[in-house]
Nucleic acid binder design. Sequence first.
DNA 1: GGTTTACGAAACGGGACCGTTGCGTATCGG
DNA 2: CCGATACGCAACGGTCCCGTTTCGTAAACC
Lengths: 202, 202
Amino acid sequence: MTIQESGAARPAGRPRSEKAEKAIIEATLDLIGEGTGISELSIEAIASRAGVGKTTIYRRWSNKEDLVVDALATLKAPLPSLTGTSVRDDLISLLDAMRRDAGETRSRCVINIAMSEADRYPQLVARFLNRAVEPRKEAMRDVIERGIATGELRPDLDVAMGAAILTGTMLWHTKWAPAGALAPDLAERVVDAVLAGMAPLT
Amino acid sequence: MTIQESGAARPAGRPRSEKAEKAIIEATLDLIGEGTGISELSIEAIASRAGVGKTTIYRRWSNKEDLVVDALATLKAPLPSLTGTSVRDDLISLLDAMRRDAGETRSRCVINIAMSEADRYPQLVARFLNRAVEPRKEAMRDVIERGIATGELRPDLDVAMGAAILTGTMLWHTKWAPAGALAPDLAERVVDAVLAGMAPLT
DNA sequence: GGTTTACGAAACGGGACCGTTGCGTATCGG
DNA sequence: CCGATACGCAACGGTCCCGTTTCGTAAACC
């Protein structure tokens, strides 16, 4: 028994460069964030932008889909911490996080993939949605349920519908806002409008 | 002066086949409706599906973008006729039209293009949005304004925000409805939920 | 019949990527 | 120093699509 290394039995030879690995994933996320669809995402483009040989990519991932999965997995989803003081404030926090994300290339990855590639890469998108949007959806559901319990929201409110209205409205704005400028108070206005409803006070 | 034809001075030789023209446009719309992005849309694929030589396509359109514009232009946008009996009914009609469209390949073209290609083909998308979504947006705005005037909607309602809430919510459902099945009563439920708002009656 | 134009099919040279391989160099352990 | 492995780079044959050209045929006009 010559091998007696400490723990993880380090293989001989030059170790793989973590820097290269990061550069590859960064490049991948950059391209996706810029609107490149998964189908048009090319290994050569990733390698070129990462300043890396194609070999280095193929040595780690056997196909494009695996690389994309790993790249997206590094996108951690830091949920905004909720103050819990009022349901209105918490909803604004959640929606304002969406607004802020809409401006960042990195966070655009989520929305770009989910929007355009859902039909063609259903399993990839599904695996990823569970990680990125499910926690947010759950957080919003919790807030809404709490609001119903405390009387801040109407008792007969359909929780799923409420969440759909709020997120759908924000999503609509992030995609088709005039001139792409998202007003800083957008989340607040959306929440207040949705809370109040369109019907007049009877 | 030999040329003295009746009216449109028909050019000599075999006339262009209208059937081929239609087949090309049909094939284009099919592919887009199936989720093919504009960037990956290839002339060869269109020609193949249309049962047509590439020559026949290039003879009519000098580039892919022109073809796509013409193809999308044939998508007429039959707005649902509004009964005008009540604002609630009209809003349901408008939203239910969205729900029905979401199931048809042809109508999916609009949403697919607008969603995924907005960044890369801004002028094409813009030209097309004016034709397809602007009339609908305007119809909804009219209905909402009428509702405000008749007292069916709250007088302080932000018209644009109201339209965003309704269309955004429907859009959210059409894209991410569980199992892709859109319940027939979805439009009604959305309208009622949005009208009522989430806040309890004070 | 003769002319003119459109048609579908096939082939062209050119470009982008594919996934793989070989090369010379760099970096680790022994 | 030596063997092993990773590195960036360049090149390979292969596939897909590009936009163009050529070919034989089809359909309109005179």
